[in-house]
Write a protein that binds this DNA or RNA. Structure first.
Length: 550
RNA sequence: GGGCCCGUGGCUCAGCAUGGAUAGAGCGACGGCCUUCUAAGCCGUAGGUCGCGGGUUCAAAUCCCGCCGGGUCCGCCA
């Protein structure tokens, strides 16, 4: 709805979109007069007044005023009424800007050599949230986990698995990483084993059956554990795509042929692409002297496949992939293919330094989830009216919410230092605050039903300034969704939802609902119900369960 | 050495793309509010040279240049 208001404002003014912005002083504010002031050598105020004199309020633009050169626009009562009607009418569907298109989101894609750690889940949470928001926007979204089954570290894991076996009593990913860590130590002690690693990698790429079976077994084990963790976090993948598939299905050969035909390959024993014209110091090797391919080669093949199937493809990658990511984009462009859009996120480190799976220096996602759950459980214990089962359910939802929100609210480009104390401090958990606000809405509506639910009837003319503010905020849902789709910054949405919860709690404080008389009661119940729908739909986009009581 | 990212009250962050009206939240601190729709809530107070120095502009947290501090990348690894 807010999008329509903005469109009307733009149509009235006939100015470029960038001069119209959100503001604390108005629903939308225009700064064009400042620009014109310079050219015309007149005061911004004068120009703004002149511009406004020619404008007539329309359907959704209720009033216009000029202050200090700003042209401030306010929504009409009709706008407020249509917003509430739309929300109540669309319910679960509310909030979509109704886009069309085929989109692929690739995220997480952690090496299958052990459990996900707290750095990996930053990737999962950003990726999953983007995917959810794009789906909401109406796009046809598929999510994939790219399984790096051909790497050196998987060969090492496979060797460790064969040599030491694994502890079957443990969750499989945690068991696999033990073999990986042990094998790494073994390699340090005995560098001769290096040849075995290399040999195994070559055999796997050439399609040696025994090697394939070994890799498959160990990778499946790791993935089994990883999938369980992802499920706990409400992170969904439609498919797990194995890197080695692109060797076997011919895409690697095709991409190499394309590179060759474009004259991009320098074959000097190894095959490489010279990117010095684009400012890269070193060439990118796509085929080793021994005939095997590299990670980037398979990734190029994967992106050839993406080009054939999707209009937009988005990768969520750690900042350590920046160089290789840019090279991938540039090579694809040279081939006349579409490059992926990449969301880079900075590292999550521990107070004592960066994490390392190889050295066993990491905090696993499972451990974090468990501890946060225990903490949430302590708080829920205080609610005597709830059954044990309900308490458990609420604690789980609150824990996952706290965790997901903690990661998604921070802009991806910010480095994070993990802190146990903060992760477990529920005083600062904003997710449960939003869940709580939603539960409050539900509670009011439950009581209203008990005492005979009246018809909901929102009236623009009954709105207090705060109610007006809340409804305008509710109208921005699809506008915010669209922003995330365009800018790929899911933290914008987290911020928005927090603002909705905040404003609702302000409303709750000094606007009695159930005690209000007749039409005011109907009016406010409509606001509560609409807020409930926005909070519920919004929490779902963040992968957080909207609880009805807590 | 070169590239990229980050640097905003004691702490964690938003705002920076497209410069504009008093720099916003949360935690922590201090003081208040449960006979009134869930106190996982609300209200109030204190706390800021927006890393530093220049520049552009009527106007800079936001744009440009130079520094400083932290992170990260620069393999025929992934």
């Amino acid at each position: 709805m807010f999008l329509r208001f903005k469109k009307e404002v733009l149509k009235m003014l006939k100015v470029d979109e960038r001069f119209v912005k959100e503001s604390d002083h108005a629903d939308l504010a225009c700064t064009i007069a400042f620009k014109l002031a310079k050219e015309q050598k007149r005061s911004p105020q004068e120009i703004a007044e002149e511009l406004v004199a020619e404008l007539e309020p329309r359907e959704y633009v209720g009033s216009i005023e000029v202050v200090n050169g700003y042209i401030n626009f306010f929504v009409s009562e009709e706008f407020l009424e249509d917003t509430i009607d739309l929300i109540l009418d669309q319910d679960y569907d509310y909030g979509s800007p109704r886009l069309k298109g085929e989109v692929l989101v690739e995220h997480t894609s952690a090496n299958p050599d052990g459990p996900l750690h707290i750095g990996h889940i930053r990737n999962s949470i950003i990726g999953d949230t983007i995917a959810r928001i794009m789906k909401k926007a109406g796009l046809n979204v598929r999510t994939q986990y790219y399984v790096n089954d051909m790497g050196r570290q998987i060969a090492i894991t496979a060797l460790g698995y064969r040599r030491f076996g694994i502890d079957e009593s443990k969750k499989p990913d945690h068991a696999v990483v033990e073999a990986y860590i042990k094998m790494n130590k073994e390699l340090e002690r005995n560098p001769e084993l290096e040849r075995e690693v290399e040999d195994l990698m070559i055999r796997y790429e050439r399609g040696d059956e025994e090697a394939i079976e070994l890799f498959r077994e160990v990778v499946e084990l790791a993935l089994e554990g990883i999938k369980e963790t992802l499920q706990r976090l409400n992170v969904q993948h439609d498919e797990f795509v194995w890197e080695s598939e692109f060797i076997r299905n011919g895409y690697v050969d095709r991409i190499l042929k394309m590179l060759d035909e474009k004259g991009l390959l320098k074959k000097d024993g190894a095959w490489m692409i010279d990117l010095s014209d684009l400012g890269y110091e070193k060439p990118v090797v796509v085929r080793r002297e021994n005939g095997t391919t590299l990670y980037v080669t398979r990734d190029l093949a994967y992106h050839l496949w993406k080009n054939e199937n999707f209009e937009r493809f988005i990768n969520v990658l750690g900042a350590d992939h920046k160089l290789i990511g840019k090279q991938l984009q540039d090579i694809l462009k040279l081939l006349g293919l579409k490059p992926p859009e990449i969301v880079f996120f900075e590292f999550v480190s521990l107070p004592e330094g960066s994490m390392s799976t190889r050295k066993g220096k990491f905090i696993s996602a499972d451990e974090l989830i468990e501890k946060v759950y225990e903490e949430a459980r302590k708080i829920v214990e205080g609610r005597e009216e709830l059954s044990d089962e309900e308490k458990d359910h609420i604690a789980k939802a609150v824990a996952v919410g706290a965790l997901r929100f903690d990661f998604v609210k921070i802009a991806p480009e910010k480095p994070m230092v993990f802190d146990w104390q903060k992760a477990l401090d529920f005083e600062r958990q904003t997710a449960s605050y939003i869940q709580y606000s939603h539960a409050r809405c539900c509670s009011i509506l439950r009581k209203a039903v008990e005492s005979g639910m009246p018809d909901l009837d929102f009236r623009g003319d009954l709105c207090t300034p705060l109610e007006r503010k809340l409804v305008v905020l509710l109208s921005k849902f699809s506008y915010i969704v669209l922003r995330v789709v365009n800018e790929l910054k899911p933290n914008i949405f987290a911020d928005y939802l927090l603002k909705v919860a905040n404003t609702f709690n302000d409303f709750y404080r000094d606007h009695p609902v159930l005690k209000a008389e007749s039409e005011l009661r109907m009016h406010r119940l409509a606001i509560v119900d609409a807020t409930r729908i926005v909070l519920r739909n919004g929490l779902e986009l963040l992968g957080i369960e909207p609880l009805e009581r807590m």
